[in-house]
């Protein structure tokens, strides 16, 4: 295992210390509770937006804490949901009196832990609402699974909903927009290599020099199928077409196109993926209204990419464009 770390046990804590040292003007890190809170939290009268999940997906979620996006993030151990105590501490820290909104990715662990935290917060009189993102079309959304996983849409949703919350919207309004964003977004990912969980020390799965996994999750979970390595054009077809079909995207519609790297894939490759995506969308007469290209929801050092398409309306675009000031996403301020 080749990583820039000191020891597998201290990875998350030390990365948090690094964030605290580098971004004191944007965020506060509470090491005891293992949470990241925006520097000026709680903001009175504002809905507090909290997200979290296992670590190893950086910059998500900690890198999205700050004005116009998240009020707090609770990072768990690598690929392991945070515990209710942590989430509760985050909810308390950002409760400005207008309630707290939880952004949860649809994994059994995340759902259960956030659920327990919500129960505890409500018992303290904090109003709580939540969204469970489930945009991964690689997983069948049926009775026979835990439901689709939450992946790339989470990033877009955190930005858009964070923008709305910053504008002073109510918990109800925030929840309504979050629901719409989640419904209008779909994703799919693939891997060229496995990642290595530090505590395990060896790759989660082995792939041959000429193989790739299609439909992987963001926790090093293997995908739905293993196929021969293919040119980027074919890979993007395999990812984009199921998304477009599942969303029922029609000619003339507008999307936010998000090309995401899994952590070990460099930007130059992501732009080739972006080229192929743009080609496919153009062929279907779908307009790219906004775009995001980069490694924003990762799986440690996994090489690979995911694509997310979000069917946007004017309200979504307004809050996507709204100013944001976080370690990882920043504009307008």
């Amino acid at each position: 295992m080749k990583k820039l770390i000191n020891s597998p046990e201290t990875v998350v804590k030390e990365a948090l210390e690094g964030m605290a040292a580098m971004h004191p003007e944007l965020i506060r890190v509470d090491l005891e509770n293992q949470i990241i809170v925006r520097a000026d939290a709680p903001v009175r009268g504002k809905v507090g937006v909290v997200s979290g999940g296992g670590s190893g997906h950086e910059p998500m979620h900690g890198g999205f804490v700050g004005r116009g996006m998240l009020d707090a993030a609770c990072p768990g151990a690598i690929f392991t949901s945070p515990v209710p105590d942590q989430i509760l501490a985050a909810m308390r820290a950002v409760n400005g009196g207008a309630g707290v909104f939880q952004i949860i990715k649809n994994y059994t662990g995340d759902v259960l832990n956030f659920e327990m935290a919500a129960e505890l917060a409500q018992a303290e009189g904090i109003e709580v609402a939540s969204v469970i993102t489930n945009d991964d079309v690689a997983v069948e959304d049926s009775l026979y699974t835990a439901g689709r996983r939450g992946v790339g849409v989470t990033v877009l949703l955190e930005k858009i909903v964070g923008g709305l919350a910053e504008s002073g919207a109510s918990l109800e309004q925030v929840a309504a927009l979050a629901k719409r964003v989640n419904e209008q977004g779909r994703s799919m990912g693939m891997a060229l290599t496995s990642c290595t969980v530090p505590a395990k020390g060896t790759p989660t799965f082995d792939l041959g020099e000429d193989e790739m996994e299609i439909g992987i999750g963001i926790h090093g979970e293997p995908g739905r199928r293993r196929v021969k390595l293919a040119p980027a054009a074919d890979i993007v077809e395999m990812l984009a077409n199921p998304i477009i079909e599942d969303l029922g995207l029609k000619a003339g519609e507008r999307v936010l196109a998000f090309v995401n790297g899994m952590g070990g894939t460099p930007l130059i490759e992501l732009y080739i993926v972006a080229r192929e995506l743009a080609r496919i969308l153009k062929g279907r007469n779908i307009t790219i209204a906004r775009s995001l290209v980069g490694s924003y929801i990762t799986s440690l050092e996994m090489a690979g990419c995911s694509i997310t398409l979000l069917r946007v309306d004017d309200e979504m675009l307004r809050y996507w464009d709204a100013p944001v000031l976080t370690p990882a996403l920043r504009w307008g301020i």
Binding site: S81, P84, G109
Partner: peptide, 12 residues
């Protein structure tokens, strides 16, 4: 266990 395990198995 709830406070330290996380994941699915912690709450369970």
């Amino acid at each position: 266990l709830v406070s330290t395990v996380g994941g699915a198995s912690g709450p369970l």
